[in-house]
Nucleic acid binder design. Sequence first.
DNA 1: GGCTGTTACGCTTCGCGTAATCATG
DNA 2: CATGATTACGCGAAGCGTAACAGCC
Lengths: 308, 308
Amino acid sequence: MKLRQLQCFCAVVDAGFNISRASAVLHATQPAVGKQLRQLEEELGADLLLRQGGRLLGLTDAGERTLPWARQALQSADNIRVAAQEGTGDTRGTIELATTHTHANYVLLPAILAFTKRFPQVHIGLQQGTPEQVAELVRDGKVALGVVHPPAQLPREIVAVPFFLSRLVLVMPLNHPLLKEKALTLEKLASYPLIVQNPARPQGARILRQFQQAGLQVNLAVQALDADVMKTYVAAGLGIAVIPAFTYSAKNDRGLRVRDVDHLFGPTPSAVLLKRQSYLKHFVYAFLEQLDPTLARGRVEALIFESE
Amino acid sequence: MKLRQLQCFCAVVDAGFNISRASAVLHATQPAVGKQLRQLEEELGADLLLRQGGRLLGLTDAGERTLPWARQALQSADNIRVAAQEGTGDTRGTIELATTHTHANYVLLPAILAFTKRFPQVHIGLQQGTPEQVAELVRDGKVALGVVHPPAQLPREIVAVPFFLSRLVLVMPLNHPLLKEKALTLEKLASYPLIVQNPARPQGARILRQFQQAGLQVNLAVQALDADVMKTYVAAGLGIAVIPAFTYSAKNDRGLRVRDVDHLFGPTPSAVLLKRQSYLKHFVYAFLEQLDPTLARGRVEALIFESE
DNA sequence: GGCTGTTACGCTTCGCGTAATCATG
DNA sequence: CATGATTACGCGAAGCGTAACAGCC
């Protein structure tokens, strides 16, 4: 048995039982991948993939049983690579992390500042994307951690560790009529043009769901991608928006006013996404503690290595 | 990275940092193993083994960090082989287990009878040895489980799941003076020639420790290896012996009498030895439940996969 | 006929063993 | 000089890619 064979097996499964697509991911050719598969099956003496008319349809029972262990073996190999790299007391190295614009700009900034002060030699590689893209980067081991509003569904390989609940606020231009309303309701909000985050993202989806559940038609002005753009559009008079409180600062957002709407939407969690069973460099643990004291090493390890 | 490289790495560590011995275990030659090691180190970009003057002395920090993951990768590969073999609803196959003479003869017998009745097609491969040898067989994956009086120390890779506490009894020939004594004490026992299990084994060690702690000199007649031999020797008049209650039966051991000495030595546990993180066939779980109802699948799995 | 997986062939690399070499106590 | 690791070399197997072939929408 070779790691390469297991890699091909997992890749084919992840590619939706399509050898062609898997071979592209593996930077190899179709025949090479196909051969590895058959060699693995031959050595094990059992078919792993259901074939019908020269197509792959799914996993056999044996495939179902072996797949988790194939993944575990590959994960262990990844961990070996990471563990071999880092020096125990090393003060330099790299942390690869992925996050959304909003978290990069507000939540991560203080943590990164404090961290680089403590470890000036550690380079932080930042990647941005939607929470789903971030989750994928974590799952594929391209980054060690992700920081996002966790999406409703996550692959099983990933743990989301919530560390911070933010209130939501309604942001408006100066002198907006809603500033004078006594109590804000979903109905009142719905009567104005609304700027909402793209509903493909957890934040936008959450907000819109509340309106839908109340049976309200929303007057969508624009679908923006992050809180900063939403604020810019609000300031430009395109509409009002609901954003996490941490993205508004009275000092920097002088052209805007906010009102608390936590009673309408509830708080929104920020979470760290980590891959189960993955070895994290000691910096990463240091960074997590910097990000939030509740993300202590012991607790995080327990969550990563628990058996779901 | 190749599984073979990891295998060589682990083998060299297990062989006490000796490539020659490791290569024998791996059925390969010195140069082959050495080359795999250096290739692994080269690919990882870090030394794993401390070399001094052409000798291996121990693990580097990087080696220390990677070793557990190398083992995990190999374990996963083993699990794949096992998982691929067994058919889900299969009623035939093999269980390899290791145990001591005493457990084979008394504890396992009813479980094996019941099990083979339920799964007539499953072949049970039985190996015997000392508890330490059994533990080694489990650790090396030669057998799926072991059943023994657990030794004081076990390798970290192994979990011992106790399932049965047996009282200890003193076994004597008919008409032995101790049968008329009111209360048995260690002192009284020590005044007669004693037949004890070899102290290298947990049972023998336990008994002798009690005498030592009481500051008593023991009159050792013979060191036997299992309860049956001890009974034979007692019947022959060589001395008296302390054995687990389950090894005595009034029906079959007519030439012998017993008295309870649980108050002197305490009960002795029987345990199942299993390798952490190892995939067990569904028969094995069935067998464990047959052996003792407390060894239910859920509980056993939780113990095998807990992170120590 | 486009998509997908398999077979056939040749090249290159890799893994192994034998034998010789080197270092250490 | 005995033990144990490394280097050198040659053979056979394995892995890969290109190209041609075979089943299914």
